[in-house]
Structure formats: C-alpha cells, structure tokens
C-alpha cells in the first residue's frame, strides 16, 4: 500500500472511530423506562445483610423488601435522591454499594489515582531518563557482527 493511501486510510479510521463513539455515547436509545430505572437502582444498593451483594443479586428477604420499595417509589415518581435518602435513613450507609466520597471513605477514590499518577511518572522517568544517552558501538562489536553475518550466509543485510 502506498504511503499516501495509508495516511488517508488512517485519517478515515480515526474519523470513523471518533464519530461512531459519539453516536454510541449520545444515542441512548430513548428515555429510561420505569423497568430499566428499577433495574438500575436495584443494582446500586447493597442488601444490608448479604455481605456485599446488591439487592438485585440477593435472594434474601430484606433484598426483596428493598426491591419492592424501589419499585413502588419509582411508580410513585420519587427521584433517585429521595429513594437513596430514604434507604440510608432506614439502613444506614452500608446500604450504599458505592462508598461515599467524603471523610475517610474518600481515600478509596483518591489513593488509586495518586498511585497511578506516581506510577506513570515513574515509568515515564524510567523511559525518558535514558534517552539521548550516547550509545557507542565499539569496533569489536562491528567485527563480531560482521563475522556472524558472514557465517549465516549474509542473508541478513
């Protein structure tokens, strides 16, 4: 493939992937139905007695109660925040599967970011720190290479 065609090809590939991503992100297939909303909310609350399972996953009685509460609230037109606040009032913070982002608990969001940034800086330093250093090829190296090449029939040129 000639170089110019390839450049055009890459432009097309990048443009296509960007526009397809935009379509995927913004065409969400219509407004959320009540059933979809119930499903999403059930996925986002923990069953308080089931050690980390969501109320959607759990078969426990209390999970069924909360599922029913969510379904009723959605039908009554309550907002997500109202449902969340009511559940926290009844079952405390452990009903939230997503930890809060304040106080001590915020560390769970902050620490990974700090670590990745530090790691990336470290890796970056490991790579760039070595660049530009002179690498001398000694005569001995060149001779060794020449010998190796002639032994293997010289088809590596």
């Amino acid at each position: 493939m000639p170089a110019r065609v390839r450049v055009l090809g890459w432009v097309a590939v990048i443009a296509a992937s960007l526009s397809l991503s935009v379509v995927a992100a913004f065409d969400d297939g219509g407004a959320e139905t009540d059933a979809e909303r119930i499903e999403r909310l059930s996925d986002s609350f923990a069953c308080p007695e089931c050690r980390g399972q969501s109320v959607a996953e759990s078969n426990a009685a209390v999970a069924a109660t909360i599922r029913q509460f969510i379904a009723d609230s959605v039908t009554d037109g309550a907002t997500d925040t109202e449902i969340r606040d009511q559940l926290v009032a009844s079952y405390e913070a452990r009903v939230l599967l997503n930890p809060p982002a304040d106080g001590f608990a915020s560390l769970i969001w902050v620490l990974p970011v700090v670590l990745v940034v530090l790691g990336a800086v470290g890796v970056g330093a490991a790579i760039t720190g070595n660049r530009g250093r002179d690498r001398q090829v000694s005569d001995e190296d060149i001779e060794l290479l020449a010998r190796a090449r002639s032994r293997s029939g010289g088809d590596h040129s």
Binding site: D43, S44, A46, G52, Q53, S54, E92, A93, R94, V95, L96, L97, N98, P99, P100, G103, F104, A105, L107, I108
Partner: peptide
C-alpha cells in the same frame, strides 16, 4: 480490605460493592 480499615478508623460500616 477497605471496609476493615474504615471500621478500624472510625467504626463506620461501609459496603464496597460492584459499582466501585
């Protein structure tokens, strides 16, 4: 291990689940 740490820190009971 975070729920353990949180409980040791201030006694709060957290759930870290799939969304996180």
């Amino acid at each position: 291990v975070f729920p353990l740490l949180a409980e040791a820190w201030d006694g709060s009971r957290l759930t870290i689940g799939s969304p996180y």
